[in-house]
Computed example of a mutant assay.
Amino acid sequence: MPHTTSAAPAGERAAGTDGDIAVSVQGVHKQFGDLVAVKDLDIDIRAGEFFSMLGPSGSGKTTVLRMIAGFEEPTAGRILLHGEDVTRSAPFDRPVNTVFQDYALFPHLSIAENVAYGLKVRGVSKTERARLVSEALEQVRLGHVAERRPSQLSGGQRQRIALARALILRPQVLLLDEPLGALDKQLREQMQFELKQIQRDVGITFVFVTHDQEEALTLSDRVAVFNDGRIEQVGSPREVYEFPRTEFVARFLGITNLLSGETARALLGDAAPHSVRPERVQLAAPGAPSADGAVSLAGRVLETVYAGAHTRYLVETEIGVRFISEQQNAHTPHTAPSVQRGDAVSLRFARDHVVAVPAAAG
């Protein structure tokens, strides 16, 4: 039978004592006029973890981040930071700092002056400011640009400067609102690794908002998947990808083949929804033997999509159901792919590569 998930239910609180929890969002509801942006949300974020809030535009993730920061006030519920109720506290009275997508650097100040700005406002001495700024810039490996202006830096460098400016104040929690969204793909991927390394080095709780599924999986210790003002699922990147608890999570986190109803009953013996990821669906020559117990279907390739490291195949099967298969491009660069559009194929997947998708949350 297909494997079933034991991942934690949506909205379940993190294990541990209150002292282990950096951010606790308890029964939070947010309404703008007739629009309900966040619906009775409960989530605990552990101290020192990289926690991502992932979801499409309008799903409520940025509103939650703004309420944690103090830029928005909940309509109902409360927010605790390390056990202290800050629901009605002003942003400057909270032990948090925020990095925005546009970085918000002062164009007329040098990089060193930008990083030192918060310390200056707090009245830190000039000598101590200089020492801390030097340490912060070295931490993001940009000590050599201290005297430049923001306009003289690349997008990735400006992102790291914004990060240094936020971290120099040693917040208990760092909030990041899609800080990599303005970068091109190559630079964004490079910055993902750097951001994760910095978080591990400083040990501060990072709460990261993104709509990029790959980014959330790459960076996070845990991911909360948002949809329509609610959390559909919380778990490690592996849990939410391998064991989606709702059809929305299965579809939103990458590509999936979702089987339900009579199709699922015919192939799996169970009409409930099931998910099998494209990389688990193999293609072979028609009539080729398959492993005992594997689901095997004859089909024809309707379309191929070359994506560099892998190729996706859209296959119309003999039962009228279309499957997506994703194969690594293991052939040599001078060899044509063995499967082409229009080819007859045998499509198969192991039953233990299929996971049941529980009923939708809420």
Rank of each mutant, 00 (worst) to 15 (best):
L41S: 04
A360T: 13
A76Y: 12
T218C: 07
I168L: 05
A15I: 06
P179D: 12
D34C: 01
F193N: 06
S151G: 15
K30V: 07
V207Y: 13
V23C: 01
R200F: 02
S296H: 01
P107G: 06
E232A: 08
E84G: 03
T263D: 15
D40S: 08
E247V: 13
Q282P: 02
S151N: 14
A330G: 02
L54G: 01
S346R: 15
R88Y: 03
V357Q: 05
P278H: 08
E128F: 08
G261Y: 14
A116I: 10
L268Q: 03
L187A: 08
P244D: 00
Q139L: 13
N329V: 10
L167I: 06
V234K: 02
E239N: 02
R122D: 02
P333K: 07
H274D: 03
V36L: 09
A164Q: 09
L174P: 10
D184N: 00
M53F: 12
Q197M: 07
A344R: 14
G342H: 12
I231C: 05
I204H: 05
A112V: 11
T218G: 07
A359R: 07
F248L: 00
E214T: 11
R158A: 00
T98H: 06
V295W: 09
A350C: 02
R88A: 08
F243N: 03
Q157Y: 09
T98G: 08
D201L: 03
H3K: 15
T4A: 15
E128C: 05
D228P: 04
L347N: 06
E128I: 05
L176C: 00
R277Y: 04
R251K: 09
A284F: 07
E72I: 06
A250E: 02
R351K: 05
S151K: 11
R46M: 05
R351S: 00
V64S: 03
F100W: 03
T87N: 14
K30R: 07
G118L: 10
R188I: 05
V339T: 10
P337Q: 05
V173Q: 02
A216T: 01
I231P: 12
A344N: 15
G77E: 09
I68L: 04
L132K: 15
N227S: 11
A356I: 05
S24I: 07
G55Y: 09
G287P: 11
Q172R: 13
P278A: 06
Q327F: 05
F226S: 00
T4V: 11
S290W: 09
A7C: 05
Q340A: 12
Y103V: 06
Q190E: 15
K120G: 08
D343N: 10
R230L: 12
D42G: 08
S24Y: 10
E135N: 06
I111D: 05
A130I: 04
V305D: 11
S275D: 02
V223S: 00
R13T: 11
H274R: 02
P273M: 01
